[in-house]
Amino acid sequence: MPDKYGVGEDAYCYAGSTVLRNKLEIRDEPTLDEAEQQLSAIAAASVEFNPPPYDLSYLQNIHRALFCDLFEWAGELRTVGMAKQASRFCQPEYMEKEAEKIFAKLATANWFEGMDRADLIVAVADAYSDINVVHPFREGNGRAQRILFEHLIMNAGFEISWWGIEKDEWICANIAAYNCVLGPMEKVFEKCIGQAIQP
């Protein structure tokens, strides 16, 4: 019985189900989705900004903070292959190596510090798309990645807000980026990245 990620039967789900095992023992997906949204939204407020360097461990710590009340494996790298529609994410055995390359590229770019807004939009869209293909967690990748990118963008000296981005627009941008078409993701970040933060 494949779930929305095409994983099917795996150790993350209750037997014969596509519902992820969770600390609250919720056994139906709509209720779990609701609990996940509420708990992660509350937890997000407690995730503190830190300046770079950023790495996979930093992203794992964000994920752990967001989902530790719900999943035993919060912050742990997934151990199963995953796909969503026609998008196949990085296989578990390659995730750390691929993430290391992406974060090294960010470090070489000096974490986008000193970029003007137009260049930042392009750079962030590209970097976000790369990390999304790694998709290191069984669930909750988008929320953890968005906080990582809030920190990256704020450190680069700009405001960031996800308000006003429609779910369908976000999904379409991610699918397009997976297929190396970055225009829709750049449009998302054009909306999200605000003005330079005044010192």
Results as ranks from 00 to 15, higher is better:
N50P: 07
L24W: 13
F112T: 00
D28Q: 13
G183I: 11
K167E: 08
D33F: 09
S87I: 13
A123L: 06
L106T: 00
M1N: 12
L56V: 03
L66R: 02
N174F: 00
D3H: 04
V7E: 08
C180V: 14
N110M: 11
W73F: 15
A43W: 03
A107R: 14
A86Y: 13
K191Q: 04
H63W: 00
Q145V: 02
S40L: 03
I121Q: 03
S161W: 05
Q198D: 15
G16Y: 11
A15F: 12
D119K: 15
A45T: 13
L152R: 02
K101D: 10
E100M: 08
G8Q: 09
A144P: 04
E34A: 12
L148Y: 00
L148V: 08
E166V: 06
C90R: 01
T79E: 10
A177Q: 11
G16S: 10
S17L: 06
E93T: 09
T18F: 10
M115L: 15
I175M: 07
Q195P: 07
D10P: 03
E150H: 12
V134T: 01
N50A: 15
A74W: 00
L32A: 03
I131D: 02
I62S: 00
C13Q: 14
W170H: 10
N155I: 03
I42T: 14
A176N: 10
A127T: 14
N50F: 12
F112H: 08
A125K: 00
A35W: 09
Q60G: 07
F137S: 00
Y58Q: 04
G75T: 01
A15D: 15
D119Y: 10
F149P: 05
M154D: 04
E9D: 14
G142D: 02
V124F: 06
A45L: 14
L24R: 15
M95C: 06
Y128T: 06
P52R: 06
A11P: 05
L66M: 01
